[in-house]
Design a binder for these strands. Structure first.
Lengths: 210, 210, 210, 210
DNA sequence: TACTAACCGAGACGGTACGTCCCGTCTTGAG
DNA sequence: CTCAAGACGGGACGTACCGTCTCGGTTAGTA
């Protein structure tokens, strides 16, 4: 309690409030991540930068990737919402445009790519990304699509989960395997094709006619 | 021991043919990769296992990832082909089924995922994957789609590159972000929806009618 | 398990008698020491093994070494005695043989060596060893020697403290710096030489004659 | 690259001559040891102070203690010699006085004590101390005693190794277990008693008479 | 054919991160 | 309100890897 204040060199031994430490660790991880990318988020550097000890960090996060993931999610607590105006194409287009915007304009694109990339060899990170990021968004989209089915905008037999992979998955694909550009035009075309299909009318009839 | 000095310990003196060394390095990298995954492919271990020196390996590959990529491509020289029977849906479905098969049944799935994952933080690997793997396959698919346009099976204004992302990209998405299963059923539904669209007939007319 | 919550997990709440806790701590320390040597006696492990908290242990012992020392002394409460039959050589020989026996046959040898060793860099342990172990034995020996002087078996001007170092100290030397064997033969020779000296009779006369 | 010299920040990567590195490591270890005692000699600190990497240090020394030992021996390359003037008592007294001097006056006493102490729980250090320090000195003393036997100054049946333990061992005992002072008076008394024995003349006759 | 010069692979080096263990201090929550 | 349970900062351990650089043996070029 420092009755006689003034000690300050010897400070910082012993226990500090957990919440305080956690916040500092996450802040340090976020700073490193935004500055130098995911590989810069090591337990070692985070410990030094945050003033926390490695022991403490190991107690709370299973891997540097998982720590980075939480740091990202905490600093990017975007409202999870999928506005429903009743106009399927418009709503989805708006969502996808925003998503492409996020991946390309802000610094988030690289970080998300690195998170997903690292998750391929880090089970804990993979679980964290799925639980706190991709899965909630998938569920939200599917709920919206269920409404669209009720409104008669989507076929009754449409595979709603598949739509997510065709729309957002295609964007992730262009993010992670950049053989083709990821932009608004792509988003718009994606929405259209997913809804109306790429087949010519004659071939379409053939496919459905059977 | 070593009564006749140099019988086999000294074997490795003098310079060996570059091609021979390269082959051994790639073989060692492949063995490590299949046994313990991509993180096991380090210059250090490959050097020990292959008998080559680190210096040599550094001369030829810019990063462990790039070495692993080449090791994978060399040991998986699948024929690049896209059989064209004239039946668009069937041809694409066959391709996608084979692709899903590759990603799920063989050990390739994990390795491809790890390669793409690591490529997010390894420019050299990213370039190698694109140049030797994804890009050639994208071009092949687009060429096929161009034939399908000529045959009147795809709309004239269809974005052919986008189709690749919707079909293969969706598969990669389920591989890299495993929130939903990647199987034959998914492949089939993917083909159908990409060609005919998910919109109900009424909403489809609305979208196209305008 | 735990149908009625807290049946035995919560057992350790409320304060337990200090004596009981002390005993458990010492028992845990002794167990660790005999099993894995002195370095295994850490506050951390003793706390876990004994169920006591580190705070408690810190309150009673200044260092792991001091704790280990007490654990050893408590479990080895050998009667402090120096039987006096009146026969100096026999009495001392018996004592020394028993001492060598202790150091070599039982597991005590290693532990005593480690205690003295660690005491070189642990003031508290050094003090504990001296106070509870070496010093009492030194005093006992000196008292016996004083009797021997009175009986006319030792020279009046003999340095009695020095005799302790020559007898027991030599044994400690062979324990701590094992360049030569520590056995009964050594003990016997030690006693003889300490009493009669190593000089030849002529050289002895020369030395004393002056 | 770096055709134009002058870079100096990037220096110190890659390999440096082994001898140079070894010397710097030993110097750093010695400095730490003399300044703060043996516990200050950790691989970590030595690495930082010497500029060498931990990997390198681990390659050459099995434990911090062994490193410290070598650092001590290197900086204290005292001539190994045992001057033989033909006067046994004088020669031994001179040696012992010098030894006591070393242990008490210079800073060596504490270091030797800590080395021997740590050796109790460090096999590698124990071996190093024996091989490079105690054993050579023991042999030297025994050689001298053999000459004294030839000269008729020591009894023919004297156990020469035992004399070492009685003389130097007793000193080590007072160093390591400081229950009694270690000084010149002690050294002198030690020499005398070891040669002529502590028994009174009557008791001595009794002992020998048998 | 001997003899030297250039080259190149084997592997030692500095740097950095990993994950673990321990010490000594301090917050916190159970009694 | 007290005190032990145990979380915290600090720091060392021993290992693995990266990327750089020295060293010494081989080969090729000279006498």
């Amino acid at each position: 309690m420092e009755t006689h204040a003034g000690t300050e060199a010897k400070q910082r031994r012993g226990r500090r409030p957990a919440a305080e430490v956690r916040a500092e660790v996450l802040a340090a991880a976020a700073a490193l991540m935004y500055a130098d990318g995911l590989p810069a988020v090591t337990f070692e550097r985070v410990a030094v930068r945050s003033g926390a000890s490695k022991t403490t960090i190991y107690k709370w996060w299973p891997s540097p990737g998982a720590l980075a993931a939480e740091a990202y999610f905490v600093t990017n607590k975007t409202e999870l919402q999928f506005p429903d105006t009743g106009d399927l194409a418009n709503d989805v287009r708006a969502q996808l445009r925003a998503f492409v915007q996020l991946l390309t304009q802000s610094g988030s694109g690289r970080i998300i790519a690195e998170l997903i990339g690292t998750a391929q060899t880090d089970q804990d990170l993979s679980a964290a990304v799925s639980k706190h990021y991709t899965m909630p968004r998938r569920i939200l989209a599917i709920r919206y699509f269920q409404q669209a089915v009720k409104r008669g905008q989507l076929r009754d037999d449409a595979d709603l989960g598949l739509l997510v992979d065709q729309l957002w998955g295609a964007c992730y694909n262009r993010l992670l395997i950049p053989d083709a550009p990821l932009d608004q035009k792509f988003a718009d075309a994606l929405v259209k094709n997913t809804l109306v299909g790429a087949a010519s009318s004659t071939y379409r009839s053939l496919l459905l006619g059977t």
